[in-house]
Write a protein that binds this DNA or RNA. Structure first.
Lengths: 144, 144
DNA sequence: CCATATTACATAGCAAGCTATCCATACAAG
DNA sequence: CTTGTATGGATAGCTTGCTATGTAATATGG
């Protein structure tokens, strides 16, 4: 009858995400990175020179959130923003050498966090778990 | 070889939590509630008159986070804080009538969000999913 | 061509997470 | 009892989310 938070997917999702963020922060802060910056770098390591709009679409955050995160990354010397040749509204986001050098250590840190997090799941369950997360994400996006 | 965010449990956890928060916000904002306040109310509906310390332990957030959330809840007329009789450092957190009246509509909203989120999972997978979330949470807490 | 729409980005302000500090009170050891 | 430590809470300041709004540039319809 009463609502049990430890049985609520939404509550567990929040708790899990906070723990993941803390675990990642512990491992990448020594690199001078924060989790929000890391996810931007994931996209730029894959394809450099994206616009803010591209990043917003790929990471599914609001434009204002991305603008602020990019400001902090520029302040920290991770990216540079240069005007787009064809569209003067847009600014291309490019990695600095410093950011390029962080790819290997930062992705290793994230891989280790994921491995530890999933360590208690039966090996066969790990892929199932990712699929379920993706299914829930798809359902929530459809509901939006 | 390269790190794929759509296969990273940590990234998916963050994305899922943001979508859950947005879905819950849409449904409880009309009640004058925000998600962080809702999770405090879940504990107080179960047991009124807890201290800040109790809430910190039960919800696994930092003391400073709880202090700020309780300040907003007091400002919004959801709780009142009264000095503890036995320990003058502590302040008992008590629900207002307004907060008590929100239990049914707010838990209904959260139940509906959970149902929609899990709608795409096979019925038998839904309990499995919660167990897996709890397993990941336990692993991350142990790592901390 | 020009008025209007839309698009790309910036800014302000709020919530909720965090760490680091500080204060006041309580408790425990000498 | 006094002194040192532990505990409950408050406060400052940061990141990363969000909404709402403003501005400049582009695209479009008549």
């Amino acid at each position: 009858m009463s609502f049990d938070k430890d049985d609520s997917a939404g509550y567990l999702a929040n708790h899990m995400a906070r723990l993941f963020a803390a675990a990642l922060t512990r491992r990448i802060a020594p690199l001078g990175l924060m989790p929000g910056q890391f996810m931007v770098l994931l996209e730029l390591w894959r394809e450099d020179g994206l616009t803010q709009r591209d990043l917003v679409e790929r990471l599914d955050v609001e434009q204002a959130t991305m603008a602020n995160t990019l400001n902090r990354m520029e302040r920290d010397g991770l990216i540079a923003r240069a005007p787009d040749a064809a569209d003067r509204r847009a600014r291309r986001v490019r990695l600095t050498d410093r950011a390029r050098a962080l790819e290997a250590p930062a992705t290793e840190a994230a891989t280790e966090v994921n491995a530890r997090a999933l360590a208690r799941l039966a090996p066969g369950d790990r892929a199932r778990f990712s699929e379920m997360l993706q299914g829930v994400i798809a359902a929530l996006r459809a509901d939006r």
